[in-house]
């Protein structure tokens, strides 16, 4: 059996569209569909989801036949660390305050690159945080606690 299609962009494009479109259609079944003249809240999502599925099927067929392969150079490390560092910021800002959240974000996201140097990152994180405090909290007056309990 030839599994070459698993390496092709088009196949995965189609799969992605079918999953999202199909999911939308399924969920939209909970909303009243209405008719073309009196559209309910389910009308648009169902139609749009179905269109995505159609596009998806088109791409899957393309991908099964031939097509461009996925290129291999990408960084799993960056893909995991960067979103997580944002989540970390989101968790810290309401609990620990602006400064800890920002330091954590800058330092952890720097870890996504293989070229970061620890000392440099630390120094830069402090420098950037200071600038952000001055610009955002002092100059623009955004309502954030600097460190939990301290404004």
């Amino acid at each position: 059996m030839n599994l070459e299609f698993l390496e092709r962009k088009d196949f995965w494009s189609g799969a992605m569209l079918i999953v999202i479109g199909g999911g939308a259609v399924l969920i939209a079944r909970n909303y009243q569909f209405g008719s073309s003249l009196r559209m309910g809240p389910g009308y648009f999502p169902t139609v749009l989801g179905a269109m995505l599925v159609m596009f998806g099927v088109y791409f899957v067929i393309q991908g099964l036949r031939s097509g461009e392969k996925l290129t291999s150079s990408w960084s799993l490390r960056a893909l995991i660390i960067l979103p997580l560092s944002l989540v970390l910021f989101g968790l810290l800002i309401d609990r620990a305050g602006f400064i800890p959240a920002l330091l954590a974000l800058i330092i952890s996201s720097a870890a996504a690159s293989t070229q970061s140097k620890p000392i440099e990152v630390l120094a830069f994180a402090v420098f950037l945080t200071a600038i952000c405090v001055i610009v955002f909290v002092w100059a623009l007056g955004l309502p954030y606690e600097l460190i939990a309990g301290i404004w």
Binding site: L86, T129, C132
Partner: peptide, 9 residues
């Protein structure tokens, strides 16, 4: 990392 910081804020 600077872009990440500005984006988050």
């Amino acid at each position: 990392p600077a872009i990440m910081a500005f984006s988050a804020i």
